[in-house]
Amino acid sequence: MLKHRLLHPEITEVLARAGHHAKVLIADGNYPASTAIGPNARLVSLNLAPGLVTVSQVLETLLTAIPVDEINTMGIPSDDPYALKGDPPAWTDYRRIVSAAGLDVKLTPIDKWQFYDAVASRDHVLTIQTADQQLWANVLLTLGCRTD
């Protein structure tokens, strides 16, 4: 019987095998998850219908189960046709979730193309594809160490 909120068997299996520095992508509904994936990563599709499930829902659940050292968002190039003025609304929600989880970790945007490179790395172990319709809602988690 698990005490944390994460119940999905495949996601739990991958996270249980992952170690320090492993990367987990929670992808929005627009992310090209089938092609932009690391060589060692597993893809789990949770995109049931538009908006079900969201990146925020997955992030909140994962933070009950794993230690996290770093949280990266996809930085928005100013010349991108989907560029926004300021931070995407999703990032405010992520900051609230991280704070509520008691983590002292900042959301750090990395350049869009560096984000894709980070996902393509050998350290990428899991992509969770959501159906989140918000733009720029992708989150890349770097796992930390269990210390208790």
Rank of each mutant, 00 (worst) to 15 (best):
L52N: 02
G51Q: 02
L62P: 12
V58F: 00
A65P: 07
G38A: 09
V44Q: 04
E70S: 13
T64R: 03
D28H: 04
A41K: 09
E60P: 11
G29M: 04
A22M: 06
T64K: 03
A22I: 10
V24Q: 07
S34D: 00
I26Q: 05
A41H: 08
P32H: 05
L46T: 09
T64A: 03
V58Y: 03
E60C: 11
A41Y: 05
A33S: 14
P50V: 12
H20A: 02
D69R: 15
D69W: 11
N47C: 14
Q57V: 09
I66Q: 11
L43H: 01
P39Y: 12
A41E: 01
L25E: 02
S56M: 06
I26C: 03
P50Q: 09
I66L: 11
N40D: 14
S45N: 15
E60S: 15
P39F: 09
T64N: 07
G29I: 06
N47Q: 08
L63W: 12
V68I: 15
K23G: 01
L52F: 09
S56N: 13
H21L: 08
P39M: 09
A27S: 04
L62V: 10
G29R: 07
I71E: 09
A33L: 00
P50M: 07
S34A: 00
I71Q: 10
R42A: 06
L25C: 06
V68M: 15
T64S: 14
H20R: 14
P32D: 00
N47K: 06
K23C: 00
N30F: 08
L43D: 01
L62I: 11
V24F: 07
L63F: 11
V68H: 14
D69Y: 09
A65N: 03
K23D: 01
L48F: 12
A27V: 10
V24H: 07
V53T: 14
V55I: 12
V24S: 07
P67Y: 12
L43K: 00
N30H: 13
I71S: 03
A27I: 11
S45L: 04
L63C: 12
N47E: 13
I71N: 06
D28V: 03
S34G: 03
I71D: 10
E70Q: 15
K23T: 06
T35D: 07
Q57S: 13
L63P: 09
L46S: 05
Y31V: 08
R42S: 10
L62D: 13
S45T: 10
P32K: 00
I26K: 08
H20C: 01
